[in-house]
Simulated assay, not measured.
Amino acid sequence: MFAVYAKEPNADDPLSSLVVGERPDPEVPEGWVRVSVRAASLNMHDIWTLRGVGIKPDQFPMILGCDGAGVLDDGSEVVLHSVINDPAWRGEETLDPKRTLLTEKYQGTFADSVVVPARNVLPKPAGLSFAEAATMGTAWLTAYRMLFVKSGLRPGQTMLVQGASGGVSTALVQLGRAAGFRVWVTGRTEEKRALAESLGAHATFEPGARLPERVDAVFETVGKATWSHSLKSLKPGGIVVVSGSTSGPDPSADLQRVFFLQLRVVGSTMGTRDELADLLSYVDLKGIRPQIGAEMPMTEAKQGFADMLAGNTAGKIVFTR
């Protein structure tokens, strides 16, 4: 079958390991289902996989793609939940120490078809296209959990999103505006700040800028480049919710500020199947449509990867079949 895959890990030149070609058709174990992929969205996780992060060398070649939407053999239209748990695990899926994402142990969604446990598919809302639904399982689920499960924010309070144009960031802006928060965003360029405002941000600022006032919560996916600004932007007792560190970790945690102002730092990883179901219902009820910055055939995946690696994003990059 057609697939976009990583042939081997390459930390220094990840795109050189990217192959658009053919892979064997997957077998369907008992309790699993085959999904004919209609659309799948690109995530930074796919770049990390090309670099060999979070995956053992002997697991290559690996079909890329953490999330997607498609059709079951019986014709049902579905959205994928990409967190796959150990069969013996009972409890909240994201706390399973043996959990894995598609592309870490099991083959991913950038292919004609993908095989997942039956519980990892959810009905696709009729109001979402396959391309829109393909953005939900990773970036939008991460944003939903950060905002509604982890932050403790109430409507009317002020949130700051660090970074204006990535998949999680644009989802946070759209979800936050719909939920009644005052949404502020930082962005490196005028174009990125304008995008955030078009999605509902009430105000945008250059990175590191002094804000008009301190905020109730900061949503952090950047890491070292923005961490100091995130802590300085919080009100006493405020919270920073962290789901990534694309610029690397910050070895200077500024603990004196954390304890003196009683700040809270909370980690957030992906989301549960039930949270994905709630997210799908929420966007359907609110009529929210995710920001797709680029939609292209899966055969042109190399361009999408190059754009993400260069930071040329304006929302989610989606590949279609």
Rank of each mutant, 00 (worst) to 15 (best):
residue 2 F to V: 04
residue 4 V to A: 02
residue 10 N to S: 14
residue 11 A to F: 14
residue 12 D to F: 12
residue 12 D to M: 11
residue 23 R to A: 11
residue 27 E to R: 10
residue 27 E to A: 08
residue 27 E to W: 02
residue 31 G to A: 13
residue 35 V to R: 09
residue 36 S to K: 15
residue 36 S to Y: 14
residue 37 V to A: 06
residue 37 V to T: 10
residue 38 R to Y: 04
residue 39 A to G: 01
residue 43 N to I: 07
residue 47 I to E: 00
residue 49 T to Q: 06
residue 49 T to C: 13
residue 51 R to Q: 15
residue 51 R to F: 02
residue 52 G to F: 03
residue 54 G to I: 07
residue 57 P to A: 01
residue 59 Q to F: 04
residue 59 Q to G: 00
residue 62 M to P: 01
residue 63 I to Q: 05
residue 64 L to V: 09
residue 68 G to V: 06
residue 72 L to G: 03
residue 72 L to A: 04
residue 76 S to Q: 15
residue 77 E to W: 07
residue 77 E to Q: 15
residue 78 V to K: 12
residue 83 V to R: 07
residue 85 N to A: 02
residue 90 R to K: 14
residue 91 G to C: 07
residue 92 E to I: 11
residue 94 T to E: 03
residue 94 T to P: 01
residue 96 D to E: 10
residue 98 K to M: 10
residue 99 R to T: 05
residue 101 L to Y: 08
residue 101 L to H: 10
residue 105 K to I: 05
residue 107 Q to L: 04
residue 117 P to H: 11
residue 119 R to G: 01
residue 121 V to D: 00
residue 123 P to H: 03
residue 123 P to E: 03
residue 134 A to Q: 06
residue 134 A to H: 09
residue 136 M to L: 08
residue 138 T to W: 00
residue 138 T to C: 15
residue 143 A to S: 09
residue 149 V to A: 14
residue 151 S to G: 06
residue 155 P to R: 14
residue 162 Q to Y: 13
residue 164 A to N: 10
residue 165 S to D: 01
residue 165 S to K: 06
residue 168 V to W: 11
residue 170 T to E: 03
residue 176 G to F: 13
residue 177 R to A: 15
residue 189 T to G: 13
residue 194 A to K: 15
residue 194 A to F: 05
residue 196 A to I: 10
residue 196 A to M: 05
residue 197 E to F: 00
residue 198 S to V: 12
residue 200 G to D: 02
residue 203 A to Y: 07
residue 204 T to M: 10
residue 204 T to V: 15
residue 209 A to Q: 15
residue 212 P to D: 09
residue 215 V to F: 14
residue 216 D to P: 02
residue 218 V to F: 13
residue 220 E to A: 04
residue 220 E to K: 05
residue 221 T to R: 09
residue 227 W to N: 02
residue 228 S to Y: 05
residue 232 K to G: 06
residue 233 S to A: 15
residue 237 G to Y: 05
residue 237 G to A: 06
residue 239 I to Q: 01
residue 240 V to T: 14
residue 240 V to H: 02
residue 245 S to M: 13
residue 246 T to R: 04
residue 250 D to F: 06
residue 251 P to S: 05
residue 251 P to G: 03
residue 256 Q to R: 11
residue 259 F to D: 02
residue 261 L to D: 10
residue 262 Q to E: 15
residue 264 R to W: 06
residue 269 T to V: 14
residue 270 M to F: 13
residue 274 D to F: 12
residue 284 D to W: 01
residue 289 R to W: 09
residue 292 I to E: 12
residue 293 G to D: 11
residue 297 P to K: 08
residue 297 P to Y: 01
residue 302 K to A: 09
residue 306 A to P: 01
residue 309 L to C: 10
residue 312 N to A: 12
residue 313 T to M: 08
residue 315 G to A: 04
residue 316 K to V: 00
residue 318 V to T: 12
residue 318 V to S: 03
residue 321 R to T: 09
